[in-house]
Design a protein around this nucleic acid. Structure first.
Lengths: 224, 224
DNA sequence: ATCCTGCTTCCTGTATACAAGAACCTTGAC
DNA sequence: GTCAAGGTTCTTGTATACAGGAAGCAGGAT
């Protein structure tokens, strides 16, 4: 309850940016936000610093805070790094995973399967997220886990688009099964390779993503 | 000249922490620093936020800012990630590097060789740094380049210790030659593998690093 | 003697005040 | 009518004021 105001604001603003309440390019007005949250500008500014650190806003000196609009190529670059980190997590996890973590991973996989068979896209989305976070934390490298988790969060809004692609969920699920198989049977190279391509969404999947992004961008432009 | 005070403070404090002026575990007193820099607490606190974001200080609520003392296992974890990122940079660079970047890399390699043959450790250190930064920027992925550069900077104080190990410079140089060879002759897998192990300093080199860290830690304790 | 408790003091977190720079509007000139 | 220059207003960056929690110390109880 004694949580700092600035921390609460950071979480709230992050949420608002990721969900699109504030669109890319928008300027975040300190005074307006201070009024809206009924606090002074000080914690608002502090929250801005955090958001800038995680790359969500651009802090232009004497100009203010602007919601960042990563270019498509930037997003692709981030996915490329995400693929490498995920692959690394999988490789390490297949060597270092504990018994209880294996059980959790299987549980998460089953949750994915259940959501898929029921056709519940949102449920699948969260089960999928849990699955990946489990792989991160199973890698046995706290720093890597933190980095992977942060980047995953950063890519959240774009990752969502992937699932809208026809047949993506079913293919994603099949890959999850292969990943678990490789990890629990200690085939690190294979776990790494599958996770990498799982993220990279090569071929047509990738183009679908780009197309989705363009559509999203236009949508933003209309509302903005 | 119209640089923000907070930015200047951040750079200064970062310098002071990395060079050991403030030792790990030290508490950074807002009021003292404000007096020392002849500014108010506001920009000091802003600088703290930045330092916390880059992992240099720990911001404990209602307690203050403390210089982080990464545990040895944390440092090892960071090196493990660094190795992966460097390997990725090399792999991508071997496919994407431009002609002018190749020339620059060869130049940097020659600078390393010159420094090594003259036995100038400090010169080698900087030539080595330039070499690695060139690989990062040659990877063609701006996000990756930024992440690798940031982590490299973060590991700077520990990386320095590696070079003190007997014979490390000569071996490092040989690896550099092999890296350039693999990159310019477009053997991405090889470039990745060599760079990875180049960072990981396997075997005895690794133990030497840990020993050096322990010595450094004790040194800090004595001065503090 | 040691530990607990309450007080005091100090420091952080937040609010507010102030100064300087940027944007915008108006007005005048071409 | 358009463009530029100057001033006005608004916003950010920094300083200061204030409030609440944390650490340290003293005094009493066991």
């Amino acid at each position: 309850m004694s949580e700092r105001i600035a921390d609460r604001l950071r979480d709230q603003l992050e949420q608002d940016i990721l969900t699109g309440t504030y669109a890319p390019g928008d300027r975040l007005d300190e005074v307006n936000l201070a009024r809206r949250f009924e606090v002074s500008r000080t914690p608002i500014r502090e929250a801005f610093q955090h958001l800038a650190a995680s790359g969500l806003v651009d802090l232009k000196p004497r100009r203010g805070a602007f919601v960042r609009r990563p270019s498509i190529s930037e997003i692709i670059e981030m996915f490329e790094v995400m693929a490498e980190l995920e692959g690394m997590c999988g490789r390490l996890a297949s060597r270092r995973m504990t018994v209880s973590q294996t059980a959790e991973l299987n549980e998460a996989l089953e949750a994915c399967e259940a959501a898929c068979s029921r056709g519940e896209l949102d449920t699948y989305y969260y089960a999928n997220e849990r699955f990946h976070f489990l792989v991160y934390s199973a890698c046995g490298n706290g720093y890597l886990c933190a980095q992977a988790t942060a980047l995953h969060r950063r890519l959240k809004p774009y990752r969502r688009l992937q699932l809208r692609v026809r047949g993506r969920v079913r293919r994603s699920l099949a890959e999850h099964r292969a990943i678990v198989d490789a990890i629990v049977n200690e085939r690190p190279q294979e776990a790494e390779a599958i996770l990498k391509s799982h993220i990279l969404i090569q071929g047509e999947g990738f183009n679908d993503l780009v197309a989705g992004l363009e559509r999203e961008k236009n949508g933003f432009a209309e509302t903005g």
